[in-house]
C-alpha cells in the first residue's frame, strides 16, 4: 500500500491537534508515515502511532530551533527520498506553508495550500479549498510530481486508529544554505490558558464595538470553553494581541461555533471565519453585513446581550 508522509507539528514533543487531523486524512490516501523534527521529536511517537502512523521518522538537531524554515525542508526532502510517498501533508500554518512551498520546488512537484478536505482520487488526491473569502469552493489536484498539500486546522476529525508506529531515525544532511537565516532570539507567547484560536471548537470574537473592554467576551469564552478572537480594528486599537486576530491577515478559523460581537463583517474579516459551521452575530446595527452570514443574530447592545448569555451558559452548565 502507498505511504503518505505527514509533517508533524509539535511543541517539545506535544503533538498539536492539526497533525492528528492530518493523520485522519492521510489514512484515506494510504499508510501514514510521520516525520517529527527537533527537540522532543522522539516523545511524539506514541500519540502518532495511536492515530494511525505505521512508521515514525525522527531527527533531533539544534538547527531546527536555530535557523528559519530551511532545516525542516532539508529533513522533509530526505524523508521524501527515503519513503517515496504518494503525497506529503503539512499543517497549514504560516511556517508549514513556507516549508511545503520550498519542498515542492526542491522535489519538482506541484503544491496546493489551505485544503479544507482531501479525498483519494483516480489521478491522485483531490483537494478542496475555500477561496475568495469563502465565497467559492474549488477542487484541485497536483498533476506533476509528488502532491504537496497543506491542510487547514479543523478540516478533519481526530480519530484513534492504533498502528505499529515503528520508530526510525532519519539521516538528514545540512548545508550552508540551511544556516542562511539565524534565529537570534525567541520570545515565547504567553499562554492565555484558553484553547488555541485555530484549533478551538468555539470562538468568541470581538471588534470595534467592544470599545476597549474584552473582559465581557473573555467571561463568555470561559463559560463556553472557547478561544477569544478579535477583528483587525480591535487589534489595531491595541485592545487585543495580534496573535488573536481573525481574518485575511490574521488567523483563519473553522470552529463549530463562531460568535461575533461588535464586528461589522468586512470581507477581510469574513475571509478568516466564513467556514465556521454555525455563526452567531451580535450587533446594534441591523444593516451590518455580518448578519448575512449569521445562523442566529441579535440586534442590540453587546454589553447587555453578552453578559446575559454568559449567565445563562453558566447556569445551564450548573
Amino acid at each position: 500500500m502507498a505511504e503518505v508522509l505527514v509533517h508533524v507539528d509539535h511543541a517539545d514533543g506535544a503533538v498539536r491537534k492539526p497533525t492528528l487531523e492530518l493523520l485522519t486524512l492521510a489514512r484515506r490516501l494510504g499508510e501514514p508515515v510521520a516525520l517529527a523534527l527537533g527537540a522532543g521529536a522522539r516523545e511524539t511517537t506514541a500519540v502518532l502511532a495511536e492515530h494511525g502512523a505505521t512508521r515514525v521518522l525522527t531527527h533531533e538537531a539544534s538547527e531546527y530551533a536555530d535557523y528559519l524554515v530551511v532545516p525542516k525542508v532539508d529533513a522533509l526532502r530526505a524523508a521524501v527520498a527515503a519513503v517515496s510517498p504518494a503525497a506529503v501533508l503539512v499543517p497549514s500554518s504560516a511556517e508549514g506553508k513556507e516549508i511545503a512551498a520550498r519542498l515542492a520546488i526542491r522535489i519538482g512537484s506541484g503544491i496546493v495550500t489551505d485544503a479544507i478536505d482531501v479525498e483519494a482520487g483516480a489521478e491522485g488526491p483531490i483537494v478542496t479549498q475555500s477561496v475568495f473569502a469563502g465565497s467559492y469552493t474549488t477542487k484541485s489536484r497536483v498533476s506533476l510530481g509528488t502532491p504537496v498539500i497543506t491542510v487547514k486546522p479543523n478540516s478533519a476529525p481526530v480519530e484513534p486508529a492504533p498502528a505499529a508506529g515503528t520508530v526510525a531515525e532519519l539521516a538528514v544532511g545540512f548545508s550552508d544554505s540551511t544556516r542562511g537565516t539565524r534565529i537570534t532570539e525567541r520570545i515565547p507567547r504567553r499562554s492565555s490558558g484558553r484553547p488555541e484560536l485555530t484549533e478551538a471548537a468555539i470562538v468568541v470574537a470581538g471588534g470595534r464595538g467592544v470599545n476597549g473592554d474584552f473582559t465581557v467576551l473573555e467571561a463568555l469564552a470561559d463559560a463556553l470553553g472557547a478561544a477569544v478572537g478579535a477583528s483587525r480594528a480591535a487589534v489595531d486599537a491595541d485592545w487585543y494581541p495580534h496573535a488573536q486576530q481573525v481574518g485575511q491577515t490574521g488567523k483563519s478559523v473553522s470552529p463549530q461555533l463562531y460568535i461575533a460581537a461588535g464586528i461589522s463583517g468586512a470581507i477581510q474579516h469574513r475571509a478568516g471565519m466564513q467556514t465556521a459551521k454555525t455563526i452567531v452575530a451580535i450587533n446594534k446595527d441591523p444593516e451590518a453585513p455580518i448578519f448575512d452570514l449569521a445562523d442566529h443574530g441579535v440586534i442590540g447592545d453587546l454589553f447587555e446581550i453578552v453578559p446575559a448569555l454568559t449567565a445563562e451558559a453558566r447556569a445551564r452548565k450548573g
Binding site: S135, S140, R141
Partner: peptide
Amino acid sequence: GSYTVVEAAAERPARTAGVIVKD
C-alpha cells in the same frame, strides 16, 4: 505547464438565512 489542475469551482451556496431577532 501547470503542476496543478483545478477540476471544479463552485460558488458556495448562500448560507440558509438565519433567524435575526431584535433584543
